[in-house]
Design a protein around this nucleic acid. Structure first.
Lengths: 347, 347
DNA sequence: CTGAAAGCGCTAACAC
DNA sequence: GTGTTAGCGCTTTCAG
């Protein structure tokens, strides 16, 4: 007498197989199948074998949406970056996703376009999707804490990368920007530069820290730099413009430290177009070690900021925060940068 | 008599607000609130106003997991690319996510590391997460159709970008690679090159198409090229090596068309290191117009492949496939490339 | 070791 | 206009 349908079901082609289907086929309860799927120990060896066989046969895939709803964990973490096109963030993203994958997590990446409003709404979406954690390279104004409060109200663990927000009750992973500024500037000094300019970045922690490091290194060496030696830019185009301004100065700088590689590359373009040699006339150094720095007109010296390591560490910390019951105190991890000397600061 | 709890609930700090909470507070049914949230018309103006007010007050955010389970739509589309670090894919990703966002969709990006096995398992994960659609720049072996069959068995709409798979029953959006090959080669010919080499890409459709275009252009111009003039590479490092091989040839090429910009940039590095001038000694052109091409040792001529447009169109087509009931025939969209002449092919 | 009961938070389909 | 009834596919809890 057939109570539960045939034992051998055909391989389905459209509607996904459910636990229920397997349970029915095998005359066991849904619970038992569920336990096998999740690898619980309390299932008889024989039963487990039969279930496993049928699972393979039907190519059963758990429905993560249902699992998430019932289990109140989505195994998704959200990442918000200002610009995926910037290789630094692409690399951080790669480091994060490679690290969390083995834990069963996936990452949803959002672009804020360097806009605080867009960022907030992205975060809200991510929260609505019930992400288990959040990693942010935030474009918020340092003084606005509203969105962070919203995250905290939801009790979702989050962590900042690249940009530090003072006072936020969240961990931070980033490069040691002061060290970057110091390494770069000291290198220029060691190469004989005495009139060292800096193309500073935006008023976010990396920009501020690198500028600070630049000043520290100059002070330590007893070198003075006029205010006009510090200009600012954010990308290759504005780096080009900024360099133009520096070139009009008298005396002209003999060394330029660019906030990041694109800025430095843009500056090099301007310098070369003015018929000034690099490194003969002006030496240039950047930061970030983007992968194409070696292919530029003049291979660009730079300070590597271990983007991938930043991603990996951030992911590691967040996973820990998610899986541990009691919340630990927020921590700050500064990844050590390393100098990479190339032709642009050669002799 | 208090049957339903206090009318004024405190603003909750941890457990997210649910439809149920709002319904209870306002003494209406969950359905009514749900309808208001989704903007259904059949709700009284007065009721709607009260609901809306309470929603704002409590900062209610719909739980998308629950919504997805009940509604059988996740509003998530999956994207699998071989390498996010490659700016082409980053740009495609950006185009896709910008396009689908207004429709309420988010994108989950996965990296296949150019590995078919990794790709398959990523796709399975995405399927398990019940994505509504899939966009693939696939690293599968052209002859293996297994993973595509699995997608089709699930009835999930999918679409290929960048790499075309013959015989697959899916739409395709990509650059017109033959035209890219032709434009680049014709440009070198127009600049006076007669011994034109090609650093070909891998055996996937873009590589194959560009090589074909290269051959077409040469044939059309009545120019012969020995077999040794076609070498292959995949990135800047191997492009450098490939160029080294070309430089040992006699007669030596006077023009080189690189499969993509990184390859061409690597080739330029090799050429310059050999003391040969660009464009005086050898002219070089790439493809892809990566954003730093203009900053290279010699600004690189290239063929732009409209990466962003590829992403946008792909997204557009997929959304249509998802939202339309009856499935339309798969279509092929070839985005027109455009030549960008810079110094590397100058006079 | 196995399973029944009770949801997770929401929406579809239909009554009132 | 509004509310009821039934789930979506899974997990949690706890009884057998």
């Amino acid at each position: 007498m057939v109570l539960h349908g045939p034992r051998k079901m055909p391989i389905p082609t459209h509607a996904p197989v459910r636990l229920k289907d397997i349970a029915r086929d095998l005359d066991v309860s849904v619970m038992t199948v569920s336990k096998v799927v999740r690898g619980c120990a309390d299932v008889g060896a024989e039963t487990r074998k039969r279930v496993l066989a049928r699972i393979k046969e039907l190519n059963y895939q758990p429905n993560w949406i249902a699992r998430s709803l019932a289990g109140r964990r989505t195994y998704i973490i959200g990442l918000v970056v200002p610009d995926l096109m910037h290789s630094f963030f692409a690399e951080v993203a790669k480091g994060i996703s490679a690290t969390i994958r083995p834990y069963g997590y996936d990452v949803v990446i959002c672009n804020s376009e360097e806009n605080a409003g867009v960022e907030s709404s992205e975060i809200d979406r991510l929260l609505a999707r019930q992400v288990d954690g959040l990693i942010l390279a935030s474009a918020q104004n340092p003084s606005s804490t509203e969105i962070f409060e919203r995250i905290e109200a939801r009790g979702v663990p989050y962590l900042m990368v690249d940009r530090h927000f003072a006072g936020r009750n969240a961990s931070y992973v980033g490069a040691d920007d002061e060290v970057i500024g110091r390494l770069a500037t000291e290198h220029l000094i060691a190469r004989g530069c005495r009139r060292i300019a800096h193309i500073a970045g935006p008023q976010i922690t990396p920009g501020v820290g690198r500028l600070k490091g630049y000043r520290q290194a100059l002070a330590a060496a007893g070198i003075e730099a006029p205010d006009s030696f510090v200009v600012s830019a954010t990308d290759d185009a504005s780096g080009y413009e900024a360099a133009l301004r520096l070139l009009r100065l008298d005396p002209r700088p003999d060394g330029i430290f660019g906030y990041n590689d694109p800025v430095a590359a843009g500056a090099m373009k301007a310098i070369l177009e003015h018929g000034i040699g690099i490194p003969a006339g002006i030496k240039v150094i950047g930061a970030g070690n983007v992968h194409y720095s070696d292919l530029l007109r003049v291979p660009l010296s730079t300070v590597d900021q271990a983007s991938n390591a930043i991603g990996r560490q951030a992911a590691e910390i967040l996973i820990k925060a998610i899986t541990s019951k009691r919340k630990k105190a927020p921590q700050t991890v500064l990844v050590e940068p390393t100098l990479i000397a190339r032709e642009s600061t050669g002799d």
